[in-house]
Write a protein that binds this DNA or RNA. Structure first.
Lengths: 231, 231
DNA sequence: AAGTGGTCTAGACCACAAA
DNA sequence: TTGTGGTCTAGACCACTTG
């Protein structure tokens, strides 16, 4: 009987303490929920919630009938909020600006066709826009949109960016995300006011609504941009 | 009475459907847990779990006494697994290689002192190592370690990288993470076998154990590296 | 076949933030 | 003050795996 406290957070902390102190060592089984509940003086549901939380955080591995064991390699997960660019800029204490550079229909490139799993060559709406932070180039948005969801005649992106409109109006059900670095080509360099070849932090994102492609976007951030998070 | 099904996943799906269909529109209150439980024919705890899940995913905003409302801007979150580099390489179907380039004590730079919140100039253990994928440079690991946790005399990083050893042996309690792009300087270019100035995807990570600094690391990935995740 | 985690229920009390 | 979500409990049944 340890009687830690009847709250699942307390049980979680106690379990985490045992993991960190190696009282429960990596790859070995820990007591059953029922035993822990009895030992800690709380209901099994409480223990369950605590251990479930630790499992989702990567500290424990749980399997029915197999029991619960301490993860050999704690797979910690970093989470990033997929923000609206305007909010990202404002969170940095800067004034957000926006300029629509281009908006028209055109045939998708092979890369876009593949990313959006498009069978034919039906034209997509293509937008290019620049986000500014205190007047300086911040991020170049190069986007392809399925015109079914945002017809050029009905939805305009002069003042509200496609980024923001889509987040607010077209919830997606699935998608993919990639981060990488790339050198600035001539076009990006001119628009982001940086030397050609400068290292640009780049995000590619595609989203789908129930297997219907919505949009594919490439966001190229001006040199110096850092994406950060707490662990 | 809709009688969706007594499982919290089903309640979650039903709620998500109402959010997506605008039956519950952004920024407006949705029914109380008790009402929903009655409507859907299940216990309040079941509704609670479903709505709590949707809140943690950013679809709902919940406040005691304030009720539950649909988030105006669904803050979707992308999660990345902080993998061991060896596993990252192997997951790509490549053979992992590792070479320790340097290992010694030296005084921390100002940036490192600040990142680890170090008061004095006590020397830290500094490691440089190269990870290879199928024999080609993959990632350059430039690390500072608090010697208290991994004394040079006791822990060697000749065959197992510090990255892997730390993940397995020194669980952290907090830390910070940053992603950005940077041009390859002469040293990195030589070690990663890429042109000077090439765009490198870079990760900076610092970890603490209860406010005791453990390590600060900069990982510079060879050109072409992409960090990806599903949404 | 049996053991473990996964979940549901009904009822209760509490904490917090409005009104 | 009061209403809402947050949580705990005790008991039950179920689903998945493993031996």
């Amino acid at each position: 009987m340890t009687q830690v406290a009847g709250t699942w957070q307390a049980v979680r902390e106690e379990a985490l303490r045992r993991i960190r102190s190696r009282e429960w060592s990596p790859d070995t089984l820990i007591p059953h929920e029922a035993d822990l509940a009895a030992e800690l003086g709380c209901a099994r549901a409480t223990v369950n919630r605590a251990l479930r939380a630790l499992a989702s955080e990567g500290y424990l591995v749980r399997r029915r009938k197999g029991g619960t064991r301490v993860a050999a390699t704690p797979v910690s997960k970093a989470t990033f909020a997929i923000t609206i660019i305007r909010q990202d800029v404002e969170a940095r204490g800067l004034a957000h600006g926006y300029r629509l550079l281009d908006d028209g229909m055109s045939a998708p490139t092979d890369a876009v066709k593949q990313a959006l799993k498009l069978p034919g060559n039906a034209p997509l709406r293509r937008l290019q826009a620049l986000h500014l932070a205190d007047g300086a180039p911040f991020c170049l948005e190069d986007r392809w949109i399925n015109p079914v969801f945002a017809p050029a005649g009905e939805v305009r992106f002069d003042s509200v960016s496609a980024n923001e409109w889509l987040v607010r109006n077209l919830p997606y059900s699935s998608g993919a995300l990639a981060f990488f670095a790339q050198p600035a080509d001539a076009g990006r360099a001119a628009r982001l006011c940086c030397p050609e070849g400068a290292a640009l932090f780049t995000v590619e994102r595609t989203t789908f609504s129930d297997s219907d492609p919505i949009t594919a976007v490439t966001l190229s951030y001006a040199p110096g941009y850092r994406m950060t998070t707490e662990l």
